[in-house]
Amino acid sequence: MMKKEARSSFWPDVQPELLGLVLLRLPSLADRVRLRAVCRPWRSNARLQPLPSPLPWLTLLNGTFLSIPDGKIIRMPAPDDAFCFGSIDSWLFFVHSDGGCSLVNPFSKATLDLPKLSIKWFEAIPRFGSLLQKMVVPLPLESSPGSLVAALILENGGTICMYRPPMATYLPTRRNQRSFDYVSDITFFKGKFYGLGIHDVLMTFELNFGADSKPRISCVKCITKYPTVSVILPKPLYSTYMTKKYLVECCGSLLMVKRHIEFTDTTCEHPLDCDRTAAFEVFEADLSTKPGQWRCLTTLGGQVLFVGKHHSKSFPAGESTGFQEDCIYFMCDYRNDAVDPLHDSGVYNMRTGIITPLLLETAAVPKHHGGQWRPTWLFPADAM
């Protein structure tokens, strides 16, 4: 009897230090949850362990989530009659069929309601789905939800919607100067609102609030020159190159990531099957001079980047995260029609220029069933 009791009490008595070593080797949120569910002592001791953020997920078009790089499919409840069109770290941006918008944290179940999108573009889901491009906020949502100011850029690159509940303001960004004709990406960086214009010009948008408390863009300034091209791509025989651009904050710096995609329109029987990402360029904004300069980078300083039209983020690399340094993770985000986000996806190594598959070789590639959601990166909160 005493031997049986000793054997049954061994696992709960595992020292917290050993439990911490195990947790550090479990970058998947699902695996961490399973470990904590073993017994109460493990759950309480696990709370004492400082851990890096768990592996990110990729939202699939049918409303499920794909864990990277193990390929596990996760299903979580989502608002009824709503579709995901972007994310902000561990929050999902939902648009409802009546034009209402909300930010939902699927882990804490917290919800922030946003004003309805009242312009006619948003009257029907099939029509406006392809127009919504990116939602950004200046601060973590958990820190000051009452003073939320969010920006939503539309696919046409000429309109930005500013939110400050219970109000929304639609702001055309076009000006007389050519640089303002199109905004390909936006972000908040160190409390300021930035946009990327044509010819890779970085712009700042100065915000103020009128007597009606509506957020407004009062001034737009170009603050960088054109960057120097660092990658020379071979000229394809039957196709051309399309370039996607992303703004990403990384270790206190603002980066521009240029993704070069070999793009085939008519020469292939199935054009979509012929598209492929060929290379990346990464530039850092040096704002210490006037005008600022784009400086070409060959390393990410121990970080990895996850880039996408609807959300981009830097992430620390290392053994505890399961990611290699100086790599860029990407998915297929450049088609307005519903496509498989894993079609043109992968991991680009900045040191070698080699692209490897996004999922592990042992992971089962999920079948593509289509849907209304848009592919975006979701970074799970490591809830205890």
Rank of each mutant, 00 (worst) to 15 (best):
F193P: 05
T267K: 14
L247K: 03
K244L: 07
S184Y: 11
F205L: 10
M256Q: 10
N208Y: 15
H260L: 10
I232D: 13
F193Y: 11
N208G: 11
Y194L: 07
T187F: 03
P215I: 08
H270N: 15
P271M: 14
L233M: 09
T228R: 10
C268G: 08
L196A: 07
Y246A: 03
G195D: 01
V231I: 15
V231R: 11
G191A: 13
R216G: 07
E206Q: 14
V183L: 03
L255R: 06
D212H: 04
L254T: 03
D275K: 13
C274F: 09
R259I: 14
D273L: 15
T204N: 02
V201Q: 09
L207K: 05
G195L: 01
C250Q: 01
P227D: 03
K221F: 00
E249Y: 08
G252P: 07
C251L: 07
L237D: 10
K192R: 14
H199V: 10
P215L: 07
K221I: 02
K245T: 13
E269M: 14
P227G: 04
T266P: 00
K244S: 13
D212F: 06
V248M: 01
E249Q: 07
L196C: 02
F188K: 01
D185P: 04
S239Q: 04
Y241Q: 07
V220R: 03
F193N: 03
H199A: 13
K258R: 15
D275G: 09
P271E: 12
K258Q: 11
P227I: 06
R216Y: 08
K225Y: 03
T228M: 13
L233I: 05
L255S: 05
P227V: 09
K258P: 02
R259D: 08
D273T: 11
C250G: 02
L255H: 09
K235Q: 12
C250H: 00
E206V: 10
I223A: 02
F189G: 01
S239N: 09
T187A: 13
H260V: 04
C274A: 15
I261Q: 08
D212R: 07
D273S: 15
K235D: 06
I186N: 01
E249F: 09
T266E: 15
